[in-house]
Amino acid sequence: MGSVETIRSQLQIWFRSSVFAVLLTVFLLLITAFLNPWILAPASWAILLGTFAPFAIAAMASTPAIVSGGGGIDISIGPLMALIGIVFVKVLLPNGLGAPWFSIPIMLAMGTAVGMFNGIVIAQFRYPPVITTMSVNFVLTGISLAVAPIPIAAIPNWTSQLAHWIGPIPGSLLTIGLPVLIWVGLKKTAFNRTLFAVGADDATAFSAGIDVVRTRIVAYGLGGLFAGIGAIALTALLQSADATQGGQYTLLAIAAVALGGTTLNGGRGTLRGAVFGAAAIFLLQDVLTALDVPSTWLRSAYGAALLAGVIVGARAIMRRSGSSEAHG
């Protein structure tokens, strides 16, 4: 094994994991900049990132469950973000409990709890992930509708800064940055490599003494925690309690993850891929709008792009698994 080969295989791993989404993002960013030079002005970054943040965080929140394998997926992330936001706007704020030091822990705890509930039902009780999280999706949407049947504007609060500037930096860098920080922090622990081992081959991980069930519960909990952060970003953007605002993120987020090179079979994937996958989808909408494509056509363009994206991603993965079989 020469070092050249190692470098090449490292490059391949990096290439196939997220570079497609990165390149697409850069490409779309260039087009956007060409069509709309104003986005290059730093003044607009905060607004742009503020709109982007809930989507990017939803994509990151969807990642751990998918990486944990076993057909793992969490399609309750969007409604969870909406519900937590609604609780903040309709319950915490009016009752004078909206102070950051109090409300942030509550919102994050809510997210983690729902995520872990999903994890327990899926990993411990062996429920199929798609059907489980879809049911939870329905329940959460129902609760949101019950708490906030009609959209209600929030009273002025601290979250609005997160969609604008906090001192010299765009506020949403904080909300986008927090999941990344947590993830990087976890890389210092054993959790990440355990998670990826479980995702790639749970039977082997189990036989080597890894607690597969607990690992998966923590993975779903982590997704829920990220959803809690996403709820803060969503509230920062909307400044209202709106039960209809979560659903749109659910499947878009998973599309972003897939576009970012994370295989839905588990065991491979990056948070970076999720962010860039989300960025590509986000910018695609911008580009189409800038090209004067009527807004009624956006949806079909997005569907076609998603289809093309996952096929390109799947082809890359198929080529890789094909080449590894040849070694067998």
Partner: peptide, 18 residues
């Protein structure tokens, strides 16, 4: 675990959850 490194495979399961 196919995609993981030799080192990781040899030490698989020796860590705690965190």
């Amino acid at each position: 675990v196919g995609p993981q490194s030799v080192l990781q495979n040899v030490w698989l399961g020796s860590d705690g959850l965190f």
